[in-house]
Computed example of a mutant assay.
Amino acid sequence: MNPETNVPAAAVVSPTAKSVPATSSDRIMAVAYELFSTRGVRDVGVNELIERSGVAKATFYRHFPSKDSLVLAFLEQRDKRWTMDAVLSEALRRGSTPREQLLAIFDVFGDWFAREDFEGCSFAKVLVEMGPVHPLGQASISYLAKIRGHIQAAAEAAGLVRPEEFAYSLLVLMKGSILQAMEGDLQAAKRAQRMAVWLMEHHGA
């Protein structure tokens, strides 16, 4: 996510931050992360992945027996780099209480939406592309459920009533704000944050 104006750039983890890959597997994963996060899954072919990563076809398939196996590895890395490092960890840093941390998610989103490399939610995009029955769609559903679990835990810590229902509702606001931002609404995060305040009041905070 974009840093706050008073936060050193080095202290913020970007979900699309690039580093120098050390191995052929790392190079493939770095290319896959960039392409899948920005263009989705179906639009990216194995030949392009091989060409962009500079490895032989045999090397590619030695590390990843199929394109689907690479997408699964991408989703796992996306969960760590985007969900955990870029969103949840940053929201924890910005808020001093569970309630503030839940609302800070939308502050983090606001910075992210303003970035030139804002790419949307990969889990939702893969789910829409592949469908809920496909293994990749199922994996995306699992990662979205994991996010919901983090929200529910924070809601419980904040003393909200019906924390599971709250988590489902907040995730609606999160996903909706991302889609709205993809339409060009740079105030989507603020709008969703205001609704999140009302939601918290409904759940007793």
Rank of each mutant, 00 (worst) to 15 (best):
E183A: 12
A86R: 03
A17Q: 13
Y168H: 14
R42S: 15
I178P: 03
K125G: 11
K146P: 00
L171V: 04
E76M: 11
A17P: 03
F60I: 02
G40S: 10
A196R: 01
V108Y: 05
S142N: 09
A114H: 15
V41E: 15
R39V: 09
R194K: 11
G54A: 04
R81E: 15
A86H: 05
G204H: 01
W112Y: 15
T16M: 12
V13C: 06
L49I: 07
R162I: 02
C121L: 10
R62D: 12
V46W: 01
D107G: 09
S177G: 00
S19V: 14
A157P: 06
K18P: 00
D85F: 08
L144R: 11
E201G: 04
V12Y: 05
E90L: 09
D185L: 01
Y33K: 13
A196P: 01
E129A: 07
G40Y: 12
A22P: 08
S140F: 02
R148A: 09
Y61N: 07
I50E: 03
R27M: 06
I28E: 04
Q138Y: 01
L127E: 10
E183H: 13
M130R: 15
K57C: 03
L72D: 11
R81H: 14
Q101D: 08
S66A: 15
F106Q: 05
F74L: 05
R39P: 10
V31F: 02
F123C: 13
L179F: 14
L186P: 00
I50N: 00
S96K: 15
R194A: 15
E4I: 00
V12I: 10
M195T: 07
T5I: 04
T23D: 04
V197A: 02
L199E: 01
R148N: 06
G131Y: 05
I105M: 14
D68A: 13
E51D: 13
A145V: 02
L127I: 07
L70G: 05
T23H: 06
G120N: 09
L127M: 10
L179S: 11
V13A: 13
M84S: 13
A17N: 02
P15Y: 08
K18V: 12
D68C: 07
F60Q: 03
F109Y: 14
K175M: 13
V108A: 06
G120W: 10
T38M: 12
E116A: 15
V20L: 14
A114P: 03
L186R: 13
A158W: 03
E76I: 04
S122H: 08
A114T: 11
P8E: 02
P135W: 01
M182A: 11
V133P: 06
R81Q: 14
L103R: 09
G95C: 12
D26H: 08
R148P: 00
D26C: 05
F60N: 07
M200H: 01
V44M: 06
D68F: 02
D85V: 00
G40H: 12
I28S: 03
A205Y: 08
T83N: 12
A181Y: 04
P15H: 03
A124K: 10
A22D: 12
S25D: 10
Y33D: 10
G176D: 04
A73S: 12
G110W: 06
W82M: 14
W112K: 06
G54D: 03
L49R: 03
D85P: 02
A155M: 00
T59L: 09
W198G: 07
T23F: 02
A153N: 09
F109N: 09
S169H: 14
